[in-house]
Design a protein around this nucleic acid. Structure first.
Lengths: 95, 95
DNA sequence: GTAACGTGCAACTCGTCGGTTGCACCATAG
DNA sequence: CTATGGTGCAACCGACGAGTTGCACGTTAC
């Protein structure tokens, strides 16, 4: 629909996807099947989340042989930082 | 669902709701019927958006006689600022 | 070559979302 | 008192999102 900001916020609205961003930030890179071990859902569900994140420009993929490795884009890294800051901001405010 | 961050991002994912935030930021306060004049939808649709924003903690309401006036909370004002900054950030990056 | 692995695609279910209409309720203007 | 204006509530609809399963395809290991 050509609403980039809406795409990004929509992608960030899902907790599983925010977790994926966190995992990718820690590991640098991961495949869909690797991430499946961290989340309580099927590989295809994880792949869909990765596709959503990619469509929002937060993640990019590169196929290496028979596996596809995902990593955060620059925008994804920025949002990972902002999420950390927001989390601390909320904790400070709730306390 | 007890996912405050998800509530906020979900609320911000909709363009109409971001516009509502902008209008409230300009005017300080408004009713659902007033905002209906600015958006191409019915009053009840606007009221639903306001309820979503209120549930996310970005907006608060106060009933005065037969009308209900809405205004941004502190969190809502903060997000209005962040949205402006993000918009400029995107324009700079797209150019 | 063959078996196993990782992936992508398609179809399906189910719940939620954005939006509508219709109606009932309460406050105020006259 | 009556009419009108502003709300809120409930039911409904079409579309989309999250998740599942099943299967077919390409890549690697042996």
């Amino acid at each position: 629909m050509s609403d980039p900001l809406g795409q990004v916020f929509g992608a960030l609205a899902d907790q599983s996807r925010r977790q994926v961003i966190g995992y990718l930030s820690e590991r640098g890179t991961a495949t869909a099947t690797e991430l499946t071990g961290e989340l309580p859902m099927s590989r295809q569900a994880v792949a869909k989340h990765l596709a959503t994140l990619a469509h929002a420009g937060l993640v990019e993929s590169e196929r290496q042989g028979r596996e596809t490795r995902y990593r955060l884009t620059r925008a994804g890294e920025e949002w990972d930082d902002r999420l950390d800051a927001l989390k601390k901001h909320l904790e400070r405010r709730t306390r």
